[in-house]
Computed example of a mutant assay.
Amino acid sequence: MERKPSAVLMVALILWMFGVAGTVILPLFDQEINSATASGELRNYPEDSAEAKGREIYIQNGCQTCHTQFVRALPADTNQNLGPVSQGGDYKYDLPHLLGSNRTGPDLMWVGLKYNEDWHRQHLIDPQSTSPGSIMPSFDYLTNKELDDLVAYLMSLKPTEERLAEYKKEREEQNSMNDK
């Protein structure tokens, strides 16, 4: 085989094709991945809704640069009590996907559960007033309508009641096992 680089190249090409098939093509046929979860259905915003407009404002202002919307099944995320682990179906209607790749700020996947509308509005206008030491810029230049839409979007980022109940049950079981 050392004397036949074409054979090595052929084996490498075959292995690469198997990799592509396994990671790109086969998932297209997996209905569990391609079906929206109940939480994903909540993110199917009507085109002219405040949530859809708020999502556009979120994108235009680059919020996904500092905030992820993806809770991983890793101790780094589960120990922070960020909420239920994200599933593929949670993003069925997200185009573009706003998973993010950097957490300069906190994860926002389920931020609609954590704070009320007044807190979000105040945080967007003056982040230091709600989160001392925050490096988030102020969005006080947004109009009241844009702030309302952005807050509506942030408030919509939450799981269904059933998924939240499952998550709380899992946390309780995990805590009881850690206490033993």
Rank of each mutant, 00 (worst) to 15 (best):
I59K: 06
K53F: 04
E51M: 09
L74R: 13
P46G: 07
N34P: 00
S39M: 02
L26P: 03
A73T: 06
I25H: 10
S35H: 08
V71P: 04
L42W: 02
A36Y: 03
Q69Y: 07
T65G: 15
Y58F: 15
L82D: 05
I33P: 00
G22W: 13
R55F: 05
A76F: 14
T78F: 09
I59Q: 04
E47H: 12
N34E: 08
E41R: 07
N44T: 00
P46D: 14
Y58L: 04
L74C: 11
T78M: 11
G40E: 03
G54Y: 09
R55V: 02
K53V: 01
N79S: 11
L74A: 15
R55M: 11
A76L: 14
H67Y: 00
A21I: 14
G40A: 04
R72Y: 08
T78I: 13
A38T: 06
P27D: 06
E51F: 05
P46T: 02
H67A: 04
A73K: 10
V71T: 08
R43Q: 08
V24L: 12
T68A: 10
L26N: 06
A73F: 05
P46I: 01
N81W: 08
T23E: 08
C66W: 00
N34G: 00
E51N: 05
V20N: 08
N81H: 09
Q60A: 15
F70T: 02
N79G: 06
S35E: 10
I59C: 00
I57Y: 07
G54E: 08
F70A: 02
P27E: 07
Q80F: 03
G19N: 10
H67F: 01
Q69M: 14
G62Y: 10
F29Q: 07
G62Q: 13
Y45S: 01
A38M: 05
A73M: 07
L82A: 07
S49I: 09
L42P: 01
S49N: 12
V20T: 12
N61I: 04
S49W: 08
Q80V: 02
H67M: 05
C63I: 00
N44M: 03
K53Q: 15
A76Q: 15
C66N: 02
A73S: 15
V24Q: 11
E56W: 04
K53D: 12
A52D: 06
T65H: 11
T78R: 13
Y45W: 11
P27F: 07
P27W: 05
R43N: 03
T37M: 01
G62D: 09
I59T: 00
P75F: 09
G62S: 13
C63P: 03
S35L: 04
E41K: 09
F29P: 04
F70P: 01
G22Y: 10
T23F: 09
S35R: 12
T78P: 09
G54H: 12
N79R: 12
A52P: 02
V24A: 13
S35C: 03
P75L: 07
N61S: 05
I33L: 14
D77T: 10
Q64T: 10
S49H: 12
S49V: 08
F70S: 06
G22L: 14
K53I: 02
E51H: 04
A38R: 07
P75Q: 04
Y58P: 02
N34L: 06
N44V: 00
D30F: 00
Q69K: 09
I33S: 02
L42T: 03
T23Q: 13
A36S: 06
L42F: 03
D30W: 03
S49F: 12
L42R: 12
A36E: 01
